[in-house]
Simulated assay, not measured.
Amino acid sequence: MRPARSAKGARPANHAAATMDWVSQRAEDIGSVIEGLDKIAFQTRVLAMNAAVEAGNAGEAGRGFAVVADLVSALAVRAEEEAKRVRELITETRSEVQVAAEAVQRMDASLIAIASDVDAVHSLLVHLHEDSEQQSRAVSEIASAMVTLDGATQQNAAMVEQASAAADTLSDEVLTLNRHARAFEFERRKRDLPVALDRRARGRQAGHTNPPRISAA
């Protein structure tokens, strides 16, 4: 898209340069026409001078013709002067057109340089846009990973809570089992106590010095 815009921007400058060239060419054509008119005026003045000479030779009869020849000669001189003036104006115009054409060419070069800079900036913006999209995708992936990690963390927290609850339940069960074990031990000792006392009594009767021990198990 950028080269098309550059060509579009340079098109008016190229058209102006072509117009300047056309004006310069037409000035040269007009100069050629003025040069032809100048030659015609010179030849007319020469013919008027010859007519004046012939009228002078004709004497009184050619006096009126001499007056006309003088007027024609004066018009020829004036035509030469005007042709010279027009030639000078055309020369000045041609110089100004040349200066304008050079200015247009410089402007065209500047437009090309500006278009090149604009293309470079456009390319940079495209790269920045691509980098921004990549960064946006990376941020989205990171956000998705954070959501997944948060879910895993919450799941782990729930599992920790479940494990803690299970540990509490197990601790309660251990305490209950301890109570049951102590109660069972106490009942067993109650059952074994008469037997132990009977054995002790028998031992005394038999003369044993060491009384039988009650097992702690």
Rank of each mutant, 00 (worst) to 15 (best):
E60K: 09
A69V: 03
A143L: 13
V121S: 10
M107W: 04
G207I: 01
V174H: 08
T44W: 02
V86L: 08
A16W: 01
R137M: 03
A13Y: 11
G203F: 04
E82M: 08
A4K: 06
K190R: 15
T209D: 12
A167Q: 08
M107H: 13
Q205E: 12
M159Y: 07
V68Q: 14
P3V: 00
P194L: 12
S73G: 15
A4I: 02
Q43A: 13
E161G: 10
R11N: 03
L75V: 06
Q43R: 14
L175E: 15
N50G: 07
R5H: 06
V72P: 01
R202S: 08
R191A: 15
T153W: 09
M1D: 07
D29W: 03
Q154M: 15
V23R: 05
H15D: 13
E141H: 10
T19E: 05
G64C: 04
E60T: 08
M49I: 11
P3H: 03
A27P: 00
V126Q: 09
G203C: 04
M1L: 05
N178V: 04
V104I: 01
S73V: 00
A138G: 06
G62Y: 02
E130G: 02
G9H: 15
R189V: 05
S6R: 13
S24T: 10
G56D: 09
L193F: 13
V67P: 00
T169F: 05
Q155K: 14
G56K: 05
R106E: 04
K8R: 08
D29E: 14
H127F: 04
K84L: 11
G64W: 06
A157E: 12
R199L: 15
R45E: 14
V174M: 11
D131M: 06
A79I: 01
R213T: 07
A143H: 10
V86I: 08
A74H: 07
V53K: 09
D192H: 08
E81G: 03
A55E: 00
T153L: 15
F184G: 12
R63A: 09
A163V: 02
A181C: 04
E82W: 07
A217G: 13
H129R: 12
L47E: 13
T153A: 15
N210G: 00
V160F: 07
L177C: 09
F65W: 09
A163R: 10
S132F: 11
S95F: 01
G64M: 10
A51R: 06
